[in-house]
């Protein structure tokens, strides 16, 4: 028993030291990208077990251009700005909708790089063809997304016609609610819906855009210079064709990229 205990102790100590070694104090040359690791195709866990996605690849390439050491930090999306403030990451760059409230709070926001729209995803053959058909139905939406904000604010007249809004903590759960019959539609960002539809049969996206918005990169207040540098590096990537090459890997979103229009 004693032996077992001492082995366990040793294991725990080794583990905690290993954890210590994983991340160093923020060096001058390190650029830590804050991502939502549950947001394909912009940022997600790739098939090889490493983070990838459109935003991750672009950021990596930009860091190479600038000579920065690239690192990923997985933010908790509900707390992303707290974690940015607390210097756990240097930016939040993960299909993030630019909100006026962010600018009002002093965050430095890059020029928008993606035109997003919110769409409704429904089951094929459900008979729902527009948002008007959703009166008395249940609509699922992800907590903390701009879709949820829209339903509560600008589109509150529309959401008042629903039987209820079902708030889930991830898209996967929203889609599962829809698939399982607990919800009649999912209110979601277009790229997420598109990538889901391309992988799963039996769903369609309604041809109705319910709220345009743009994606950008958020930096801490006072980091204008860093924002300029990153924007500059991205502009270079656009110029030398790397940007288009990376974008080609993500066909669902390529049409909405601002820099490629």
């Amino acid at each position: 028993m004693k032996k077992l205990l001492s082995i366990m102790f040793a294991a725990v100590l080794v583990l905690s030291f290993a954890a210590c070694g994983a991340k160093n104090e923020a060096g001058s040359n390190k650029f830590i990208m804050g991502i939502d690791p549950e947001y394909p195709p912009f940022s997600y866990l790739g098939d090889d077990g490493n983070y990838t996605g459109f935003d991750v690849e672009i950021c990596k390439a930009a860091c190479e251009k600038l000579g920065y050491e690239f690192e990923v930090f997985e933010v908790n999306w509900d707390e992303k700005l707290v974690q940015l403030d607390a210097k756990e990451c240097d930016c939040v760059w993960s299909g993030m909708t630019i909100l006026d409230s962010m600018k009002e709070e002093g965050y430095v926001i890059s020029a928008p790089y993606f035109d997003n729209s919110q769409v409704l995803l429904v089951k094929e053959g459900s008979g729902i063809t527009s948002s008007k058909d959703l009166a008395g139905k249940i609509v699922a939406v992800q907590l903390g997304t701009s879709g949820e904000a829209l339903l509560n604010d600008e589109l509150s007249d529309l959401s008042a016609t629903f039987e209820s809004v079902l708030t889930c903590d991830s898209f996967l759960k929203c889609f599962t609610e829809l698939d399982g019959g607990a919800a009649d539609a999912v209110f979601v960002d277009y790229p997420v819906a598109a990538s889901y539809v391309s992988e799963h049969a039996g769903f369609t996206i309604l041809d109705e855009e319910l709220g345009g918005e743009q994606y950008g990169i958020a930096f801490r207040a006072g980091d204008e210079e860093l924002c300029k540098k990153i924007e500059g590096a991205v502009a270079e990537l656009v110029k030398d064709g790397t940007y288009a090459k990376i974008a080609a890997k993500y066909p669902d979103i390529v049409d909405s990229l601002v820099f490629l229009k």
């Binding site: 549950e38 394909p40 997600y44 997985e74 908790n76 974690q83 996967l172 992988e199």
Partner: peptide, 23 residues
């Protein structure tokens, strides 16, 4: 622990679930 972005087992499980849309 996922609340503060500590990458423990369930947090990673959720990430895989969302990138693979699988339960």
């Amino acid at each position: 622990a996922f609340t503060v972005s500590y990458q423990e087992m369930f947090t990673i499980g959720k990430q895989i679930a969302n990138s693979q849309t699988s339960f």
